[in-house]
Structures are given as C-alpha cells and as structure tokens.
Simulated scan of single mutants.
Amino acid sequence: MRIALPPTIDAAAFAARDPSAAVLDLHGKTMGTSWSVRFAAPAGVDPTAIRKAIVARLSGLVAEMSHWEPDSLLSRFNRSAPGTWTTLPPDFAHVMTRGLAIAETTNGAFDPAIGKLVDAWGFGVIPVTHVPSRLEVETARASSGWRRLVFAPSGAHLRQPGGSALDLSGIAKGHAVDAIADLLHNAGISNALVEIGGELVGRGIKPNGDPWWVDLESPPGLALPALRIALHGMAVATSGNYRRGAHTLNPRTGHPIETHVVSASVLHQTALDADAWATALTVLGRGGLELAHDLGIAARIVTVIDGTVQEYLTPGLSAMVSD
C-alpha cells in the first residue's frame, strides 16, 4: 500500500501526548451531510459540552453562508438590490478573501459567484425539469462571475453589483472543518480528526503516537491503488461528480465540465484551500497539473476516457508518497 507522509512532523505533539488519553467520537448532521470528530480527550473535558459547542459553531456558519437557507446572510446578499454593500462577519469575510484569491489564481476555474448558473442547471435550491437553453445559460453567465464583485477586505464589505448570486458550496464546507478543528484546539484539544462530508483535517496525533490515518477517497468501481495519508497538520478534500449531490460546472463556459475528471483530491494545510482547489482542479482537469506543480499543490487527479482510467499525482504529492 502507498503511504503519504506530511513534509514536516511536529515533534512537540509527540512530546506532549498523553498515552492514557481516551479517544472519543462525536457525530452529527450539518450542511446536508454528516460531521464526525475523533479526539484524544484531555482530563476533565466534557464531551457533551464539546458536542454542544460544535453544533452551535456549525449552525452559525450555516446561518451565514448556506445557499439552501432563505434567511442566511448569503441568501440575503443574493437578493439585495444593485449597489448594496453587505458587511460580512469574520468567517464569511475569510471565506470570500480566500475564495476570490483562488478564483484569480485559477482564472475563474473556482468561482464563488456562480449561483445563477447553479440555479439555471437545477443544481440549487429550485430544481428544473429541462436542460437550460443557450439563452438561459448566457443570461445566467451575464450576471455571474467573481470579477463582478467588489470586496473591501479591510472593512469586510461586499458589494452586490446587481443580480449576482454567491454559491460557496465549493469552499464553505472546508472552512467549517477548519473552524471545528480550531474550536477543539481552543478548548484544549490539540489531537483530533475532524470530518464533514468526506473532507478532513488532522491535528496532532493519537495517544499511541500514530498519526490520524485516512485512505484517500476514490470513485466507486475504479481499481485504483490505495493511498493512505497521515493527516498530521494537514487537510484533504476530494471533488467528484460521483459524490451525493455533486455537480461540477465550468464557470467559464457555464456548462458541466468536459475534462473527463471523475475525482480530484488535494492535500493542503487548510481544508478551506483543499476544498476550493479540489473544485478548481476538477474544472481544469489535466490542464491544472502544471498550475498545481508551479504552486506546489499536492493533488491527485483521476480521469476516465473511453473506459481507460488514469491517475495523475502532482510532484507535491509524489514527494510525500512511499510504498
């Protein structure tokens, strides 16, 4: 089996670990999927209180950035009048800051402002019964796109240019994973594995000194060699149309992707970046490998063309892998 090890190891985590600590599991539902947390419990930690704090934190993020909740701040922004400025709370502002930066780096392969296109194809809140016409797609594209947004990070003000709709489904879940890991750290829990809908971040180590091992997700039915990852100070996210509710649009064409990518996985320091980059590489396909190489992004892209399965590892990931 192939194993991927992080480029750096936190020696302090090993020195500070408590071999007698119990490993506890918490579970729940959020963002239309499930969440789970596994952590080495320090003495005196109340799991019930931790779970309550996790639920509250996730509920707050949904209230800000869900495009499924009509009363969320995101939904209110999408309905706001042209020229309206919305002041974003810290989580929302952070997601927009990183999302717009990644949109620029990928030339729009990742785009947080494709809500109208998502709706046109029936992938959003309101399903449609037909494939959109060329006119419908072009109309949606005309009001979409990250370049139409004006964001002032210093004051966290976001301007509605008129008709634009945010859809943060390709980045907000990753941020939620990071946020829960930070919540646990602030509660004195330094060793934990956090997962939301298959996106994970690992902090610290297990009480026995092992890292948090996870197997890289692969599309069902494909005979790919297994890849086990030591999530130690790292996050991983996978994008793929085989996943429940997943539909990948190319923001630059307004149509579903034609890259033959069935899975794109990214390892990164944060789940937010891993999430957004997995989406971008799904859109870019093999053409994104050079960009990932130049930026040192650790990624795996899987394509299926005429029944032939091909796996591509970027140098950033290959450098971590050993048999």
Results as ranks from 00 to 15, higher is better:
Met1Trp: 03
Ile3Ala: 00
Ala4Gly: 11
Leu5Arg: 15
Ile9Ala: 12
Asp10Ile: 10
Asp10Tyr: 01
Ala13Gly: 14
Ala15Val: 15
Ala16Lys: 13
Ala16Phe: 11
Ser20Arg: 15
Leu24Ile: 15
Leu24Thr: 11
Asp25Leu: 11
Leu26Ser: 05
Lys29Ser: 12
Thr30Pro: 02
Thr30Trp: 04
Thr33Gly: 03
Ser36Pro: 01
Ala41Arg: 15
Gly44Lys: 14
Asp46Leu: 07
Ile50Tyr: 05
Ile50Trp: 04
Lys52His: 14
Ala53Lys: 14
Ile54Cys: 09
Leu58Glu: 09
Val62Cys: 05
Pro70His: 06
Phe77His: 05
Ser80Lys: 08
Pro82Ser: 09
Thr84Leu: 01
Val95Gly: 02
Arg98Gly: 00
Gly99Trp: 03
Leu100Ala: 00
Ala101Ile: 08
Ile102Arg: 05
Ile102Thr: 12
Gly108Ser: 12
Ala109Gly: 08
Phe110Ile: 09
Asp111Trp: 08
Pro112Thr: 04
Ala113Cys: 15
Ala113His: 10
Leu117Met: 15
Asp119Phe: 07
Gly124Phe: 11
Val125Asn: 02
Ile126Pro: 00
Val128Tyr: 05
Thr129Ser: 14
His130Tyr: 10
His130Cys: 00
Ser133Asn: 07
Ala140Phe: 11
Ala142Pro: 00
Ala142Leu: 12
Ser143Thr: 15
Ser144Pro: 06
Ser144Met: 02
Gly145Ile: 08
Arg147Lys: 12
Arg148Thr: 02
Arg148Ser: 07
Phe151Gly: 02
Gly155Cys: 06
Gln160Arg: 04
Pro161Arg: 00
Asp167Ile: 10
Leu168Tyr: 08
Ala172Gln: 12
Lys173Ser: 08
His175Gln: 10
Ala176Gly: 11
Leu183Pro: 04
Leu184Asp: 13
Leu184Asn: 12
Ala187Met: 13
Gly188Met: 08
Ile189Ser: 13
Ile189His: 11
Leu193Asn: 10
Val194Lys: 06
Glu195Pro: 03
Ile196Asp: 04
Ile196Asn: 11
Val201Met: 09
Gly202Phe: 09
Ile205Thr: 13
Lys206Cys: 08
Asn208Leu: 00
Asn208His: 03
Asp215His: 05
Ser218Asn: 05
Gly221Asn: 01
Leu222Thr: 01
Ala226Val: 00
Leu227His: 02
Ile229Tyr: 04
Ala235Pro: 11
Ala235Gln: 09
Arg244Glu: 10
His247Phe: 11
His247Met: 08
Leu249Gly: 00
Arg252Pro: 08
Thr253Asn: 06
Glu258Val: 14
Thr259His: 06
Val262Cys: 01
Ser263Gly: 01
Ala264Ile: 06
Ser265Ile: 10
Leu267Asp: 11
His268Gln: 09
Asp275Lys: 09
Ala276Ser: 14
Ala278Ser: 15
Ala278Phe: 03
Ala278Val: 06
Thr279Val: 09
Leu281Ser: 06
Leu281Met: 07
Gly285Asp: 07
Arg286Thr: 14
Gly287Ser: 02
Leu289Trp: 05
Asp294Arg: 15
Asp294Phe: 04
Gly296Thr: 07
Ile297His: 03
Ala299Met: 04
Arg300Met: 11
Arg300Gln: 15
Ile301Gln: 05
Thr303His: 01
Gly307Ile: 04
Gln310Val: 14
Tyr312Cys: 10
Val321Pro: 02
Ser322Ile: 13
Asp323Arg: 09
